[in-house]
Write a protein that binds this DNA or RNA. Structure first.
Length: 473
RNA sequence: UCCUUAGUAGCUCAGUUGGUUAGAGCACAUGACUGUUAAUCAUGGGGUCCCUGGUUCGAGUCCAGGCUGGGGAGCCA
């Protein structure tokens, strides 16, 4: 029996054995015990006969103990049930002079440097339980809707995906790699016989599968060697990429909206206690902040709002019009220019989502020049069938498109984007053999976890974040 | 990569114009108390003031360079 089960069934009078970690030891008599099964602690009442004085001095915050005892109605006010111990055994001590986690508020920055121990805190155990709930919800959603999970390769030989800087995968002796006559490194001699990288996206592989299996999705790690130092970027992150044959852009947006709402509802139903804890935490933090930086509504209310409201759908062109006609623009409050043909800046996206619509927004049909080569060219020859979903607080959470399925048009786009045809031969072939309309999108898993937990730094929603200059643990 | 801000006890922070032995709360140890809820009270121990160099009679404080963290921007998911 774990604490979650005990607190949901309240089995008074039951004799049990329970293992867990000490959060606090008050008055040399009361242990707040946590076993990770839920956010709540169980109070263990220790009388002198259950614990020797010697062992009593070995119990500190962080220690692991095993308790035999009986579940009884609590005499204190803070809890309904408590475990009256008949025997307490210290399984693992925790030297209080060295153990850095205390039963007080620690800064998230400090805990980031103690990533191996931060699981022991209420905040991080809640975040990682919710991360699991979301991961499970994602597989659930796609499975229930007839999608096939495709494991895209992590090591890739394609070097033209255009999604960012890539990490090289090599078996060479870095001191002395084989070189060609012109002095450049001869990757022909390397393990795979060519220059290989860690994948930046499983999309292209997912497309290959979708053009046979119909509905597929990938959910795996991806890697970007960009020198991005922000609270929204990681060098190693997990991405969900569904790809559906015969879907157009509208169907793609329908799928993305339905999928996001399902994940949020799933967490509201299955992770309520952890959400409540994080909501409280956020409210406490907000009290320290100036009014304009505070959240507009409590966490659970924000999630329910997204789950129950239709996302706003507008085109890029309409978005530009809204921005140009806004009083914000007329008062010259935007730092960056707004003009058809250039990409929207963070401040513009925030304005649309947080001020103008105050709900998630699906932006579609961007100018072709600012989007990737594989996006389908629209009839106007100027825009592509792209879509970004923007949410308050995070910004872009989903990026997707209807893909260019016409061989000639795709070949032309490759030329425009300086992508060598021979490196993409396998991708182009799908457009020669039984091509069809299809669409998909990518969702950054950590951004979803951020949105659902209300955490504001992406490094706090993945157990061991990989960022520039940091690969500890 | 750019802008900005910070780095002082295990943690959170104060430290005045450059001036004697660098402080507080929490944590920890000891004692008191014993149905507590981050218990309380008393006493005590605890410092590479991020690193390197410089200015000065004297640097936690001023200057230069570097390292690391935070916030923002770009790139994006």
């Amino acid at each position: 029996m774990n604490i979650k089960e005990i607190l949901s069934s309240l089995p008074l009078g039951t004799a049990i054995q329970l293992n867990g970690w000490v959060r606090t030891f008050r008055n040399e008599q009361f242990i707040a015990l946590n076993d990770g099964s839920c956010i709540s602690n169980l109070q263990v009442v220790v009388n002198a006969d259950a614990l020797s004085e010697e062992d009593s001095k070995r119990i500190h915050t962080g220690a692991c103990i095993s308790v035999h005892g009986t579940l009884t109605e609590s005499l204190g006010k803070g809890q309904a049930i408590e475990l009256t111990a008949s025997k307490v055994e210290v399984l693992g001590e925790s030297n209080p002079n060295e153990f850095p986690i205390q039963m007080k508020k620690h800064s998230l920055e400090f805990l980031r440097e103690k990533a191996h121990l931060r699981f022991r805190t209420s905040t991080f155990s809640a975040v990682f339980r919710l991360r699991h709930q979301l991961s499970f919800a994602i597989h659930n959603y796609f499975n229930q809707n007839g999608f096939v999970n495709i494991h895209a390769p992590i090591i890739t030989g394609s070097d033209a995906e255009g999604a960012g800087e890539m990490f090289t995968v090599s078996n060479f002796d870095l001191e002395n790699p084989p070189r060609k006559e012109d002095g450049t490194i001869d990757f022909g001699e390397d393990f795979f016989g060519k220059h290989t990288h860690l994948t930046v996206s499983g999309q292209l592989e997912a497309e290959l599968a979708a053009l046979a299996l119909g509905k597929v999705y990938t959910f795996g790690p991806t890697f970007r060697a960009e020198n991005s130092n922000t609270s929204r970027h990681l060098a190693e992150f997990w991405m969900i990429e569904p790809e559906v044959a015969f879907n157009d852009l509208a169907a793609n947006a329908d799928l993305a909206e339905d999928f996001l709402k399902y994940c949020i509802r799933y967490v509201l139903e299955n992770g309520k206690e952890d959400l409540l804890f994080l909501q409280e935490r956020e409210a406490t933090e907000d009290k320290q902040k100036p009014t304009e930086e505070r959240q507009t509504a409590p966490l659970i209310e924000r999630l329910e709002f997204v789950a129950n409201n239709t996302f706003e759908r507008i085109t890029y062109t309409e978005a530009i019009d809204i921005l140009l006609n806004s009083s914000h623009y007329k008062k010259k409050k935007f730092k960056y220019p707004i003009e058809w043909g250039i990409d929207l800046q963070s401040e513009h996206e925030r304005y649309l989502v947080e001020k103008h619509f105050q709900k998630p927004v699906v932006l579609t049909n961007y100018p072709a020049a600012i989007k990737a080569f594989y996006m389908r060219l629209n009839e106007d020859q100027k825009t592509v069938a792209a879509m970004d979903i923007l949410v308050p607080g995070i910004g872009e959470i989903i990026g997707g498109s209807q893909r260019e399925e016409r061989y000639d048009v795709l070949l032309e786009k490759c030329k425009q984007f300086n992508i060598p045809e021979e490196s993409m031969w396998w991708y182009l072939e799908t457009r020669k053999f039984g091509t069809c309309q299809h669409a998909g999108f990518g969702l950054g898993f950590e951004r979803l976890v951020m949105y659902v937990t209300g955490m504001t730094n992406i490094r706090d929603v993945i157990p061991f974040p990989r960022t520039p200059k940091n690969a500890e643990f």
